[in-house]
Design a protein around this nucleic acid. Structure first.
Lengths: 200, 200
DNA sequence: GCTCCCGGATGACATTTGTCACCCGATAAA
DNA sequence: TTTATCGGGTGACAAATGTCATCCGGGAGC
């Protein structure tokens, strides 16, 4: 019997998955949550064997949740379920010791099956990603990430400097460095590249 | 009996919804598709009463599908199901005569119910959006949209001009106009604003 | 002690981006 | 026919962005 906890912020999918998985005789759904913080609380309360979690959730992301579980409740098996085939996400997930990484365009029929294989001790990585896993690691350091995120949201160098208590020139330097590391032509392109790789 | 066709590109959700709705005694699922073109073909083949469709799909978007149905098969009731609470999307959907506009974070239990109300002739708009519907119309013209999209993808003025066979200065003019219409500080901010409103 | 490296800052410079006023030719309205 | 209007273009200028070389004040390592 798989004692499962579900974390997914898209209510419709959360509900649909809940009902679907409950139909499986060997899965017991202990609880569900629509954001990271209540997921963490729910897991503490219910002590499930396995957690199936989205990545992008309000409050606490699925990756942060996985990292926390690795520290605090390492016996809980974490399975990530996400839309995004971003190498950086997968890498970070694996480093957090997750047992599975599935994409939301997996056929619905295969989901319960994947969970069973994971329960047996297998590690299940979506084939689309298995390859791209270890070819590219994040070249950006903390500052560069931080600044690129802000730049991507439309702030100018001066604004960014303000927020981070840095001189405008310094911001320019970091951004320039990021642009060149990512082999982009300007901040916008750099932002897109980094985001699509899951490096932000 | 509701004779339903489902179009949704996220396979997992498509499958989950299909199974869920099939459990309803008064819903008959005639078919499903994971992209716009096969949805159109499926609808032609199956002649459903109602289509439940995502917006962002490969090939043909749900909005384009709705517009096409309005022309070609106006007796088919269209219901949009999307993640995005963008006023521009809703506006366009309404202009295409859709009967319902639901968000993917509707509770799963309410979905079948909403479909039934629509079948009876009601129009169901997600309450979160019902208000914002007619307060803001897209201030951008075709050129501005086009150029803003390209700018948002990281191209510079020169590249954009190249692609569109326009002088660089002209591109700058359009972009400047768009920035001021959207009350933004630069192209990035303008892009975000427009995208979030569903104006691209 | 003395290096060497690192985060951060400067200054100088070239390029790109944003703003504005104005021009041109075609088309539509009077 | 004359006049608006519109899509597109130019030129000039200011501001923001991108690139570099260089500098400074700590540590960390020897």
């Amino acid at each position: 019997m798989i004692r499962l906890f579900l974390a997914e912020d898209q209510t419709l999918l959360l509900g649909a998955l809940a009902r679907l998985l409950q139909l499986e005789p060997d899965i017991e759904l202990l609880g569900q949550a629509a954001d990271g913080h209540s997921a963490r609380q729910g897991i503490l309360d219910q002590q499930p064997d396995m957690v199936l979690s989205d990545i992008e959730m309000p409050g606490l992301t699925g990756l942060e949740l996985a990292e926390w579980l690795q520290q605090e409740q390492p016996q809980v098996k974490v399975v990530i379920l996400t839309t995004f085939a971003r190498p950086g996400y997968l890498r970070r997930a694996l480093e957090a010791g997750v047992r599975g990484y599935l994409l939301k365009d997996t056929p619905a029929g295969q989901l319960a099956d994947a969970l069973r294989r994971i329960q047996r001790g297998e590690r299940v990585i979506d084939p689309e990603l298995a390859l791209t896993a270890f070819d590219s690691k994040n070249p950006l350091n903390g500052r560069e990430r931080q600044i690129l995120r802000l730049a991507g949201s439309g702030l100018g160098n001066a604004d960014i400097g303000q927020q981070l208590h840095l001189a405008e020139g310094t911001v320019r330097n970091y951004l320039s460095e990021a642009i060149s590391k990512l082999d982009a032509g300007n901040r916008i392109e750099a932002y897109r590249i980094a985001r699509d790789q899951g490096w932000l």
